[in-house]
Amino acid sequence: MKKFKIRADITAVTVVVFIVCIVLVSVMLMQFRTVEQTDITEIENMRESELRSLLSDWKTRYEEVSTQLADTNERIEEYNKTIEDNEAAAELVDEELTESNILVGKTDVYGEGVVVTLSDGTYSRVYASHLIDLVNELRYAGAEAISINGVRVLAMTDIVDVDTYILVNLQRIQGPYVVKAIGDKDYISTILQLKGSGFVDTVTDINVSLKVENKVEIPKYNGELEVEYMQEVVSE
Protein backbone atom coordinates (compact mmCIF):
# COMPACT_ATOMS: atom_id res chain seq x y z
CA MET A 1 0.00 0.00 0.00
CA LYS A 2 2.95 2.25 0.47
CA LYS A 3 3.64 2.59 -3.23
CA PHE A 4 0.33 4.32 -3.96
CA LYS A 5 1.02 7.07 -1.51
CA ILE A 6 3.79 8.36 -3.71
CA ARG A 7 1.46 9.62 -6.42
CA ALA A 8 -2.18 9.21 -5.47
CA ASP A 9 -4.46 9.18 -2.47
CA ILE A 10 -5.41 5.64 -1.44
CA THR A 11 -9.14 6.34 -1.17
CA ALA A 12 -9.24 7.73 -4.70
CA VAL A 13 -7.49 4.63 -5.96
CA THR A 14 -9.88 2.40 -4.11
CA VAL A 15 -12.92 4.17 -5.53
CA VAL A 16 -11.52 4.09 -9.03
CA VAL A 17 -10.67 0.41 -8.78
CA PHE A 18 -14.15 -0.26 -7.45
CA ILE A 19 -15.80 1.54 -10.36
CA VAL A 20 -13.48 -0.04 -12.88
CA CYS A 21 -14.26 -3.48 -11.53
CA ILE A 22 -18.01 -2.84 -11.69
CA VAL A 23 -17.85 -1.59 -15.28
CA LEU A 24 -15.53 -4.29 -16.52
CA VAL A 25 -17.30 -7.22 -14.92
CA SER A 26 -20.79 -6.05 -15.80
CA VAL A 27 -19.86 -5.40 -19.43
CA MET A 28 -18.06 -8.72 -19.69
CA LEU A 29 -21.03 -10.59 -18.27
CA MET A 30 -23.37 -8.84 -20.68
CA GLN A 31 -21.09 -9.81 -23.52
CA PHE A 32 -20.94 -13.43 -22.34
CA ARG A 33 -24.70 -13.59 -22.18
CA THR A 34 -25.14 -12.20 -25.68
CA VAL A 35 -22.50 -14.50 -27.13
CA GLU A 36 -24.11 -17.48 -25.44
CA GLN A 37 -27.63 -16.69 -26.56
CA THR A 38 -26.97 -15.46 -30.07
CA ASP A 39 -27.33 -18.92 -31.55
CA ILE A 40 -30.87 -19.27 -30.23
CA THR A 41 -32.30 -15.86 -30.99
CA GLU A 42 -30.05 -14.85 -33.80
CA ILE A 43 -32.51 -13.01 -36.01
CA GLU A 44 -34.13 -11.09 -33.17
CA ASN A 45 -30.80 -9.62 -32.09
CA MET A 46 -29.83 -8.43 -35.57
CA ARG A 47 -30.15 -4.95 -36.88
CA GLU A 48 -32.23 -4.04 -39.87
CA SER A 49 -29.25 -3.49 -42.19
CA GLU A 50 -27.83 -6.88 -41.36
CA LEU A 51 -31.17 -8.51 -41.98
CA ARG A 52 -31.37 -6.64 -45.25
CA SER A 53 -27.96 -7.86 -46.40
CA LEU A 54 -28.87 -11.37 -45.33
CA LEU A 55 -32.09 -11.11 -47.28
CA SER A 56 -30.28 -9.93 -50.39
CA ASP A 57 -27.80 -12.78 -49.95
CA TRP A 58 -30.62 -15.28 -49.82
CA LYS A 59 -32.26 -13.62 -52.78
CA THR A 60 -29.16 -13.96 -54.94
CA ARG A 61 -28.77 -17.53 -53.83
CA TYR A 62 -32.41 -18.18 -54.65
CA GLU A 63 -31.91 -16.73 -58.10
CA GLU A 64 -28.86 -18.88 -58.67
CA VAL A 65 -30.69 -21.97 -57.56
CA SER A 66 -33.73 -21.17 -59.67
CA THR A 67 -31.57 -20.68 -62.78
CA GLN A 68 -29.92 -23.98 -61.99
CA LEU A 69 -33.33 -25.55 -61.67
CA ALA A 70 -34.37 -24.15 -65.04
CA ASP A 71 -31.18 -25.49 -66.61
CA THR A 72 -31.76 -28.90 -65.14
CA ASN A 73 -35.37 -28.94 -66.29
CA GLU A 74 -34.26 -28.06 -69.81
CA ARG A 75 -31.75 -30.85 -69.76
CA ILE A 76 -34.39 -33.28 -68.54
CA GLU A 77 -36.66 -32.22 -71.38
CA GLU A 78 -33.87 -32.78 -73.86
CA TYR A 79 -33.27 -36.23 -72.45
CA ASN A 80 -36.99 -37.00 -72.66
CA LYS A 81 -37.01 -35.88 -76.28
CA THR A 82 -34.09 -38.08 -77.17
CA ILE A 83 -35.77 -40.96 -75.37
CA GLU A 84 -38.94 -40.40 -77.42
CA ASP A 85 -36.88 -40.19 -80.59
CA ASN A 86 -35.19 -43.44 -79.70
CA GLU A 87 -38.53 -45.07 -79.03
CA ALA A 88 -39.89 -43.89 -82.36
CA ALA A 89 -36.78 -45.19 -84.11
CA ALA A 90 -37.11 -48.50 -82.29
CA GLU A 91 -40.75 -48.76 -83.34
CA LEU A 92 -39.81 -48.02 -86.93
CA VAL A 93 -37.09 -50.67 -86.85
CA ASP A 94 -39.55 -53.12 -85.32
CA GLU A 95 -42.08 -52.49 -88.06
CA GLU A 96 -39.43 -52.92 -90.72
CA LEU A 97 -38.29 -56.13 -89.08
CA THR A 98 -41.79 -57.65 -88.99
CA GLU A 99 -42.40 -56.55 -92.56
CA SER A 100 -39.19 -58.08 -93.83
CA ASN A 101 -39.85 -61.20 -91.78
CA ILE A 102 -43.21 -61.53 -93.51
CA LEU A 103 -41.61 -60.91 -96.90
CA VAL A 104 -38.79 -63.38 -96.37
CA GLY A 105 -41.16 -66.06 -95.08
CA LYS A 106 -40.21 -66.44 -91.47
CA THR A 107 -43.76 -66.03 -90.20
CA ASP A 108 -47.05 -67.82 -90.54
CA VAL A 109 -49.26 -65.74 -92.81
CA TYR A 110 -52.84 -65.81 -94.05
CA GLY A 111 -54.92 -63.91 -96.56
CA GLU A 112 -57.09 -64.27 -99.62
CA GLY A 113 -55.70 -66.35 -102.40
CA VAL A 114 -56.00 -69.57 -104.40
CA VAL A 115 -55.39 -73.26 -103.82
CA VAL A 116 -54.24 -75.29 -106.83
CA THR A 117 -54.22 -79.06 -106.48
CA LEU A 118 -52.17 -81.16 -108.91
CA SER A 119 -52.58 -84.90 -109.15
CA ASP A 120 -51.22 -87.52 -111.53
CA GLY A 121 -53.08 -87.88 -114.85
CA THR A 122 -53.86 -91.10 -116.66
CA TYR A 123 -50.79 -90.99 -118.91
CA SER A 124 -48.41 -88.73 -116.99
CA ARG A 125 -47.42 -88.04 -113.40
CA VAL A 126 -46.70 -84.66 -111.89
CA TYR A 127 -43.10 -83.53 -112.50
CA ALA A 128 -41.10 -80.81 -110.89
CA SER A 129 -41.36 -78.81 -114.08
CA HIS A 130 -45.10 -78.60 -113.57
CA LEU A 131 -44.64 -77.20 -110.11
CA ILE A 132 -41.94 -74.80 -111.29
CA ASP A 133 -44.19 -73.54 -114.06
CA LEU A 134 -47.05 -73.13 -111.63
CA VAL A 135 -44.94 -71.26 -109.03
CA ASN A 136 -43.53 -69.06 -111.76
CA GLU A 137 -46.95 -68.20 -113.02
CA LEU A 138 -48.28 -67.53 -109.54
CA ARG A 139 -45.38 -65.17 -108.99
CA TYR A 140 -46.08 -63.51 -112.29
CA ALA A 141 -49.65 -63.03 -111.10
CA GLY A 142 -48.37 -61.26 -108.01
CA ALA A 143 -48.59 -63.95 -105.32
CA GLU A 144 -46.97 -62.80 -102.09
CA ALA A 145 -46.53 -66.17 -100.40
CA ILE A 146 -46.54 -69.67 -101.87
CA SER A 147 -46.38 -73.11 -100.29
CA ILE A 148 -46.36 -76.62 -101.72
CA ASN A 149 -47.85 -79.29 -99.47
CA GLY A 150 -47.17 -77.07 -96.47
CA VAL A 151 -43.57 -76.30 -97.46
CA ARG A 152 -42.95 -72.60 -97.86
CA VAL A 153 -41.48 -71.53 -101.19
CA LEU A 154 -38.77 -68.90 -100.71
CA ALA A 155 -36.44 -67.05 -103.05
CA MET A 156 -33.82 -69.80 -102.75
CA THR A 157 -36.22 -72.73 -102.84
CA ASP A 158 -35.34 -75.58 -105.16
CA ILE A 159 -37.89 -77.88 -106.74
CA VAL A 160 -36.29 -81.06 -108.06
CA ASP A 161 -37.43 -84.46 -109.34
CA VAL A 162 -36.00 -87.39 -107.41
CA ASP A 163 -37.28 -90.79 -108.55
CA THR A 164 -41.05 -90.73 -108.15
CA TYR A 165 -41.27 -87.91 -105.72
CA ILE A 166 -40.29 -84.28 -105.66
CA LEU A 167 -37.91 -82.39 -103.34
CA VAL A 168 -38.98 -78.92 -102.27
CA ASN A 169 -36.54 -77.14 -99.95
CA LEU A 170 -34.83 -80.54 -99.67
CA GLN A 171 -38.07 -81.94 -98.20
CA ARG A 172 -39.60 -84.94 -99.87
CA ILE A 173 -43.23 -84.50 -100.89
CA GLN A 174 -45.66 -86.67 -102.75
CA GLY A 175 -48.82 -86.11 -104.67
CA PRO A 176 -51.43 -84.89 -104.70
CA TYR A 177 -49.61 -81.58 -104.64
CA VAL A 178 -51.53 -78.77 -102.98
CA VAL A 179 -50.08 -75.39 -103.98
CA LYS A 180 -51.36 -72.50 -101.93
CA ALA A 181 -50.78 -68.85 -102.87
CA ILE A 182 -51.75 -65.60 -101.18
CA GLY A 183 -52.44 -62.64 -103.40
CA ASP A 184 -55.18 -60.94 -105.38
CA LYS A 185 -57.43 -64.03 -105.76
CA ASP A 186 -59.39 -62.77 -108.76
CA TYR A 187 -56.31 -61.65 -110.65
CA ILE A 188 -54.42 -64.88 -109.93
CA SER A 189 -57.33 -67.09 -110.91
CA THR A 190 -57.81 -65.08 -114.09
CA ILE A 191 -54.15 -65.36 -115.03
CA LEU A 192 -54.14 -69.10 -114.35
CA GLN A 193 -57.25 -69.64 -116.45
CA LEU A 194 -56.19 -67.52 -119.45
CA LYS A 195 -57.10 -69.25 -122.71
CA GLY A 196 -54.02 -70.49 -124.51
CA SER A 197 -51.42 -69.36 -121.98
CA GLY A 198 -52.86 -69.97 -118.48
CA PHE A 199 -51.58 -72.93 -116.48
CA VAL A 200 -54.99 -74.53 -116.12
CA ASP A 201 -55.65 -74.25 -119.83
CA THR A 202 -52.24 -75.33 -121.13
CA VAL A 203 -51.46 -78.20 -118.80
CA THR A 204 -53.71 -81.05 -119.78
CA ASP A 205 -51.63 -84.18 -119.10
CA ILE A 206 -52.30 -84.02 -115.32
CA ASN A 207 -55.34 -83.19 -113.24
CA VAL A 208 -55.45 -79.56 -112.16
CA SER A 209 -58.10 -78.14 -109.89
CA LEU A 210 -58.27 -74.47 -108.98
CA LYS A 211 -60.03 -73.15 -105.88
CA VAL A 212 -60.42 -69.53 -104.90
CA GLU A 213 -60.50 -68.97 -101.13
CA ASN A 214 -60.98 -65.97 -98.88
CA LYS A 215 -58.63 -67.27 -96.23
CA VAL A 216 -55.54 -69.21 -97.22
CA GLU A 217 -53.08 -70.08 -94.44
CA ILE A 218 -49.41 -70.55 -95.28
CA PRO A 219 -46.90 -71.74 -92.64
CA LYS A 220 -43.52 -70.21 -92.09
CA TYR A 221 -40.24 -71.57 -93.38
CA ASN A 222 -38.96 -74.10 -90.84
CA GLY A 223 -35.25 -74.09 -91.63
CA GLU A 224 -32.50 -71.61 -90.92
CA LEU A 225 -31.76 -68.83 -93.35
CA GLU A 226 -27.99 -68.56 -93.48
CA VAL A 227 -25.81 -66.27 -95.48
CA GLU A 228 -22.43 -67.82 -96.07
CA TYR A 229 -20.87 -66.38 -99.22
CA MET A 230 -22.57 -63.15 -100.14
CA GLN A 231 -21.74 -59.84 -98.60
CA GLU A 232 -23.41 -56.47 -98.82
CA VAL A 233 -21.86 -53.98 -101.22
CA VAL A 234 -21.32 -50.80 -99.32
CA SER A 235 -21.54 -47.84 -101.67
CA GLU A 236 -19.34 -44.98 -100.60
Binding site: V15, V17, F18, C21, I22, L24, V25, S26, L29, R33
Partner: peptide, 13 residues
Protein backbone atom coordinates in the same frame (compact mmCIF):
# COMPACT_ATOMS: atom_id res chain seq x y z
CA UNK B 1 -12.81 -2.90 -3.34
CA UNK B 2 -11.91 -5.32 -6.13
CA UNK B 3 -14.02 -8.15 -4.69
CA UNK B 4 -16.97 -5.89 -3.94
CA UNK B 5 -16.71 -4.31 -7.39
CA UNK B 6 -16.68 -7.73 -9.04
CA UNK B 7 -19.77 -8.85 -7.11
CA UNK B 8 -21.73 -5.68 -7.82
CA UNK B 9 -20.64 -5.77 -11.45
CA UNK B 10 -21.74 -9.38 -11.77
CA UNK B 11 -25.15 -8.56 -10.32
CA UNK B 12 -25.58 -5.62 -12.68
CA UNK B 13 -24.35 -7.64 -15.66
Amino acid sequence: AIILGCIVGALIG
